[in-house]
Design a binder for these strands. Structure first.
Lengths: 235, 235
DNA sequence: CTTTACTATACAACTATACAACTTATAATT
DNA sequence: AATTATAAGTTGTATAGTTGTATAGTAAAG
């Protein structure tokens, strides 16, 4: 309204900078201190402008790190054959997978049921984050039967792809048996991994991939940042 | 309130992992770098969480090596018949004894008095460490009269057990005459042997084992890591 | 007189980076 | 086979920079 207000002018200036791709998706903005010098105002005045842009979902800030430009929504196809890398690369986006945790332990009842293995058989847990265009967007937690694929982790660490890993293990094709989708709120750890706010809505998908003989290969859960992903179901 | 702090969430997550036996007593945790990736934070934030767990005595760290899960306090019974291996094995823990030093020399006055031998008779000194579930917990320094048991060391090196060694030497039973308990601070050598910090409190017990004719067999001192052991006196 | 916009200052929480001290595994050498 | 270098990985420490939050104060507008 009142274009005389300093913080509003700064808000407009920064919004224009983002629109003009002076700051691109995933980029860090100059620090609040730098911006306050650039505009000749107090840091708090800059923060007020930034706050509006954060509320609009255009910017996101991380304490100690900086303020970054948010990405626009990506479409993610879900169907019988879901392949993360292909899914993303098709749209000229660059996917990147990072392992953040792996451990061997005994299967819980739910895991055993879904994998059709004996309760307390050993499983491999792999947790990964997926960045799209360098913006963290996905967390995946996979449960894999260790008995059938004892060298899974070793190969996956090099390949960073389920499709490639399974191919090297002799599984040339696999399909999803079903996918359940629910909405959850991000806890503090997820928020940190996904560069989103605590309590941001996440899409959580739970599914089982199985080979063509209908033997389960992995029981997995994937969390998507709701603001950045739009799931599309295909037949 | 405070639970929104990131380091506190990480603290809770790691504490739960230990409680759930995902990381067991004596296990190394993933390195601080790995953990920082898992939680999506800077290494220092992980360190802050780890610090709390160290203060609580749940973890301890060793520079250059890693962060290790501290065993819960073991109960160690002291009475007329104290047997290290049985004492520990009774609680489903795995004991392991290692000789770190042995030497022959003349008895000091105190040693001679306690063993009721002539001053300057030759004695055998054996120093051992005792690991419980692979965690070093005990140092024992034994003084044994060489005149009575000239082949003690040779047998003990194979048996690594006082009870077994004495049995092979014809002593089927033995009892403690008395046990003195004091507290000491660990010096750098002890700290190294016991994987604890310098100046950690140690329990030091001094005692004499004797055969049923009340003739002393060994005069010994044992140091326990205070944080890991609770002595229990029985009649 | 109260509210709003803005400034000023200070500290806490977290990140980023670098290096030292130390351990461990592996390769090289004897 | 045993010992010695080398390299890589780990924890400890220090410094600087960033965002989050709290408090206090000034000036202008209603």
């Amino acid at each position: 309204m009142n274009s005389k207000l300093i913080y509003y002018q700064i808000y407009e200036a920064l919004k224009k900078d983002v629109a003009d791709n002076i700051y691109n998706s995933g980029d860090k903005l100059p620090s609040e201190n730098h911006l306050s010098k650039r505009f000749g105002v107090n840091r708090h005045t800059v923060r007020r402008a930034l706050q509006i842009l954060k509320n609009e979902g255009i910017l996101f800030s991380k304490r100690g790190s900086g303020v970054i430009v948010q990405a626009s929504k990506l479409k993610y196809k879900i169907g019988k054959r879901v392949r993360f890398s292909q899914n993303i690369a098709n749209e000229n986006n660059i996917p990147k997978t990072t392992i953040i945790r792996s451990e061997y332990r005994k299967a819980s009842k739910i895991e055993a049921d879904n994998l059709k293995i004996n309760s307390k058989d050993e499983i491999l847990l792999i947790e990964t984050t997926g960045k799209i265009n360098n913006i963290p967007t996905i967390i995946t937690k996979r449960i894999i039967p260790n008995k059938r694929f004892p060298s899974f982790l070793e190969i996956f660490q090099k390949e960073l792809s389920i499709t490639h890993t399974l191919k090297l293990l002799g599984v040339n094709d696999f399909v999803r048996s079903n996918t359940n989708i629910i909405a959850e709120l991000a806890d503090s750890i997820q928020a940190n991994l996904l560069n989103c706010k605590i309590n941001s809505p996440l899409l959580k998908t739970t599914y089982v991939n199985q080979d063509l003989n209908c033997i389960p290969i992995e029981f997995s859960q994937t969390w998507f940042v709701g603001e950045r992903i739009q799931l599309t179901l295909e037949d």
